[in-house]
Amino acid sequence: RPRTAFTQNQIEVLENVFRVNCYPGIDIREDLAQKLNLEEDRIQIWFQNRRAKLKR
């Protein structure tokens, strides 16, 4: 699968959610997927990668 290119707006929304909860449940991820026009699994991976970035 090709790399997902997130828009600046999508990143802002994801970062705002991350600040509140870095482990969002499936319900939050599915809601975000619908709002941001992305697949839920892409959102899940984004949070996984963002948590890894935080640990660095």
Score class of each variant (00 low, 15 high):
Arg1Asn: 15
Arg1Cys: 13
Arg1Glu: 14
Pro2Leu: 15
Pro2Gln: 15
Arg3Ser: 09
Arg3Asn: 09
Arg3Glu: 14
Thr4Met: 15
Ala5Gly: 13
Ala5Tyr: 15
Ala5Cys: 15
Ala5Arg: 13
Phe6Lys: 02
Phe6Arg: 03
Thr7Ser: 13
Thr7Gly: 06
Thr7Asp: 14
Thr7Ala: 11
Gln8Ile: 05
Gln8Cys: 09
Asn9Ala: 09
Asn9Cys: 07
Asn9Leu: 12
Gln10Cys: 01
Gln10Gly: 04
Ile11Pro: 03
Ile11Phe: 03
Glu12Ala: 08
Glu12Thr: 12
Val13Glu: 13
Val13Cys: 09
Glu15Ala: 01
Glu15Leu: 02
Glu15Arg: 05
Asn16Gln: 11
Asn16Met: 08
Asn16Thr: 10
Val17Ser: 07
Val17Glu: 06
Val17Tyr: 07
Val17Ile: 10
Val17Asn: 00
Val17Gly: 00
Arg19Tyr: 03
Arg19His: 05
Arg19Ala: 07
Val20Trp: 05
Val20Thr: 11
Val20Leu: 09
Asn21Gln: 09
Asn21Leu: 01
Cys22Arg: 12
Cys22Leu: 10
Cys22Tyr: 12
Cys22Asn: 14
Tyr23Gly: 06
Tyr23Pro: 00
Pro24Ala: 02
Pro24Asp: 03
Gly25Met: 02
Gly25Asp: 11
Ile26Pro: 12
Asp27Leu: 07
Asp27Cys: 09
Asp27Asn: 12
Ile28Arg: 03
Ile28Gly: 02
Ile28Ala: 10
Arg29Tyr: 07
Arg29Ser: 02
Arg29Glu: 00
Glu30Asn: 15
Leu32Arg: 01
Leu32Pro: 01
Leu32Ser: 01
Leu32Gln: 05
Leu32Asp: 01
Ala33Thr: 03
Ala33Tyr: 06
Ala33Asn: 03
Ala33His: 04
Gln34Val: 05
Lys35Thr: 13
Lys35Pro: 00
Leu36Gly: 01
Leu36Ser: 01
Leu38His: 04
Leu38Phe: 12
Leu38Ser: 08
Leu38Trp: 01
Glu39Asn: 08
Glu39Lys: 05
Glu40Trp: 00
Glu40His: 07
Glu40Ser: 09
Asp41Cys: 10
Ile43Arg: 00
Ile43Asp: 03
Gln44Ser: 10
Ile45Cys: 14
Ile45Asp: 12
Ile45His: 09
Ile45Met: 11
Ile45Arg: 12
Ile45Ser: 13
Trp46Asp: 05
Trp46Lys: 00
Trp46Pro: 06
Gln48Arg: 13
Gln48Lys: 13
Asn49Arg: 07
Arg50Tyr: 04
Arg50Glu: 14
Arg50Thr: 08
Arg50Val: 02
Arg51Glu: 03
Arg51Val: 08
Arg51Cys: 06
Ala52Arg: 08
Ala52Tyr: 08
Ala52Asp: 11
Ala52Ser: 10
Lys53Ser: 12
Lys53Val: 08
Lys53Met: 11
Lys55Ala: 05
Arg56Trp: 15
